[in-house]
Design a protein around this nucleic acid. Sequence first.
RNA 1: GGGAUUGUGGUCUAGCUUGGUAUGAUUCUGCGUUUGGGUCGCAGAGGUCGAGUGUUCGAAUCACUCCAAUCCCA
Length: 480
Amino acid sequence: MNKEVGITASKNDDFSEWYTQVVIKAELADYAPVKGLIVLRPDGYSIWESIKESLDKKLKETGHRNGFLPVLIPESLLGKEKKHFEGFNPEVFWVTQSGDSEIGDRLALRPTSETLAYSLYSKWIKSWRDLPLKINFWNSALRAEITGTKPFLRTSEFLWQEGHTVHATQDEAENEVMEILNIYKKTIEEELAIPVITGKKSEKDKFVGAVYTTTLESLMPDGKALQMGTSHFLGQNFSKPFDVKYLDVNNVETYAWQASWGVSWRLIGGMIMVHGDSKGLVLPPKVSPIQVVIIPIYYSKEDRETMILEANKIKDSLASNNVRVELDDRDNLTPGFKFNDWELKGIPIRIEIGPKDIAKNQVVMARRYNQTKDDISLDKVSETINLELENIQQQMFVNAKKILDERVVRVSEYQQFKEELKNGKMIDCSWCGNQTCEDKIKEETGAGLRVVPFDGTQKSETCIYCKNSGTTNALFAKGY
RNA sequence: GGGAUUGUGGUCUAGCUUGGUAUGAUUCUGCGUUUGGGUCGCAGAGGUCGAGUGUUCGAAUCACUCCAAUCCCA
C-alpha cells in the first residue's frame, strides 16, 4: 500500500495538519496564488450548493427574497456608523486606484454590506406599508486575514449569505432574529449533522454596531469552539445614521428596527472537523455530491461486461429514486484502490458488485461513517439504500450530539475550569455578567466566552471568577 | 502580533555545506497483465529548481528583497 496517497496525519495527534490534508486531498479546495484565498473545486462547491439550496428554500418560505449588492463600498458610506467602521477597518481591503488615477473617496471591498444596503433601504422605505422588508444576499465578503489562515475557517474572502431586514417594531425585528436563528439551527443540524448550542454573545463579542448578537456554537474534536452562524438585533443603531424611517399609520415619522444575519462556508469546515476520520472526509448524505458509488469487481472480460451491466441497472434504479449515484468503471484501477479513493472523499455508501454477489442475488453495501458492510438483496437495492441514507444522516447527528453532550461539563470552581479546559472540554459555569471577569478568564486560560445559552439552567451559583453572585450561565472554550 | 519550518516535473523527493543547467519514486499516455482493501512489466511524456535582483566565465546551490505554504504560541 502506498502511504503517500492518503491522509498521512493523525486526527488525534496532529489535528490541524490532518484538517488541511483532508481539504486538499479530498479535492474540496485548493490554494489560490494570493495569501489567504482559496479556490473551491467542484466537490467543495457542490457541498456549498446543497447548503445554499436548503437554506434558500427555508428563507423563501418565510418571506425573504434574494437580491445582489456590488462588492465596492465608498469609504464615506462605510464610515457612517462609527463603531461599526472601527470594528471592521483593520481588516478592510481598499481600492485606491483605477488604472493610473487615484480614487478620491477610496473604495472598500465589502467586509459586510450593512452600510450599503441601508443607505439604499432609506430610499426604498417610505411608509409602514413598505415593511417588513426582508432581503437576503448570496455573495462573498472580504476581510484581510494576515495570519493563521485555514481553508474554510479563516480566509480573506469567503462565500456567505447576509440577510438584512427592516421592521416597524422592535418586537417584530427581534422575532426575525430568532426565526432566522432557528432556521440556521435546523439547517446545520439536519443537513450537516452538526449539533449546535444557541444563545447570545457577550457584549464584548457581539457584532460591532448591533444591540445584541445571537449565535450558534459547535464544538470541534480538538476542544475549540466554532461559531457556525450569527443573527443580530440591530435595534435602531443603523436606521438612525442611515435614515431608515417610515411614516406610520398615524402619519408619524418613525425610525425602523433592523436585523441582520449570516452563515458562511465555514459550515463546511465544521462539517469536515466534526465527521472526518483517519481515512479522510466523511460526508452526511444530504450534502454529499455523490451519495452512492458502485464499484464493479470482475476477473475476466465476460465478468466485466456482466458486472457493468448489472451495476448500470442498479445505478438507473437508484437515480430514478433521486439518489446521487455514480458507477466507478475505471478499468485501470483495482477495487482496493477505488475503495480508498472514495473513502478519502467521504462518499456515504459504497456498493460492491462481483460474480460472488450475482450468484447469490445480492450486492455488498459499505457505510463510510462507521466502516460497516452488509449484504443486501439485489431485488431491494433501491429501497434499502434510501432507508440507509436516511439512517446514516440521523445516526451521524446522534453520534455527534452524544459527543457534544459529553464534552460540555458543568463546573463551579475555577481550578476545575482550568483542568477540564485542558481536557478539551467546553465549560459550563456561572458568570456575573461582568466583562472584567470575562477578560481575566480569557487572559489566564485562553478560553473565551462563546455563548450565553438560551436553555442554560439558571443555577444560583457564584461567578466562577470573582465569586460574586452569578447572574447567568455561560459557556467558555477556546475558539477558532 | 511573535516563533519555528518549508518552497525542485501533476505529487513526493535527491542534489545545496565544497557553484559547472537536475536524482529517484509515484502520477500521466500507449500496449499487455491484473482486479473481493492502494497489481505488475515494457515503452513514452513531463522540470529548468516559488519570484526578482545581485555576485560570478557560469547559480537549484552564495547574498539580498519579495511572494506563498505548514505548524506552534498570544
